[in-house]
C-alpha cells in the first residue's frame, strides 16, 4: 500500500527567483541544492513542519523530455496561472496572510470562509497558484 508522499514537483520558470520566493518569503528550508552540470540544478525545499516532504522546484527548460515546443507551452500556461499546484495549511490564516502580504506575496483571493475552514489563494513567482488554508479543527 502507498504510505506517504516524499517528492512533489512544481514547475518553475527561474530557479534563483523560486529559491528566493520559497525560502525567503514562504519560509521553507532548502533540502537539496545540487548542481547537475550545464547550468542544470536539482533544487528541493521543505515546508517548516514537514522536513521529509521534498518539494522539487523543477525548471522548465529544454532537455530530456522537454523539447522547445513543450517549454514554450509550459511557460505560457504557468505564466497564465493555469496550474494550481498544492494546498498548504497553517494554524492561523490571518496572521500568515498578513505576514506574506508584508513580504510582497501576491494573493488571488483574501482569507475567505469555506465549509472546511478559511482559505486564501496566493501565486508564486512563476505563476503557479496555491491554496493556503486554516482547516476546521
Amino acid at each position: 500500500m502507498i504510505t506517504k508522499l516524499s517528492h512533489l514537483c512544481i514547475y518553475v520558470l527561474n530557479q534563483d527567483s523560486a529559491h528566493d520566493f520559497y525560502v525567503n518569503k514562504l519560509g521553507f528550508s532548502v533540502h537539496t541544492d545540487a548542481p547537475m552540470g550545464e547550468g542544470a540544478r536539482w533544487l528541493t525545499v521543505t515546508p517548516p513542519e514537514q522536513p521529509e516532504l521534498e518539494i522539487t522546484l523543477f525548471l522548465v527548460a529544454e532537455g530530456g523530455m522537454f523539447d522547445k515546443e513543450t517549454v514554450a507551452t509550459m511557460t505560457s500556461l504557468i505564466k497564465k496561472g493555469t496550474f494550481g499546484a498544492a494546498v498548504f495549511t497553517c494554524n492561523d490564516l490571518m496572521a500568515t496572510y498578513q505576514e506574506l502580504i508584508a513580504k510582497g506575496v501576491v494573493f488571488k483571493k483574501p482569507p475567505t470562509k469555506e465549509f472546511y475552514g478559511y482559505e486564501a489563494l496566493f501565486v508564486d513567482d512563476s505563476g503557479n497558484w496555491f491554496s493556503l488554508a486554516q482547516l476546521n479543527s
Binding site: H7, C9, T32, A34, P35, M36, G37, A40, W42, T56, F58, G63, G64, M65, F66
Partner: peptide, 15 residues
C-alpha cells in the same frame, strides 16, 4: 549529485 535525485526525475531532465 545524482544520488540526491530520484531516477524518474533524472531521466525526465535527461541527466
Amino acid at each position: 549529485p545524482l544520488s540526491a535525485v530520484p531516477n524518474c526525475f533524472a531521466q525526465t531532465h535527461g541527466w
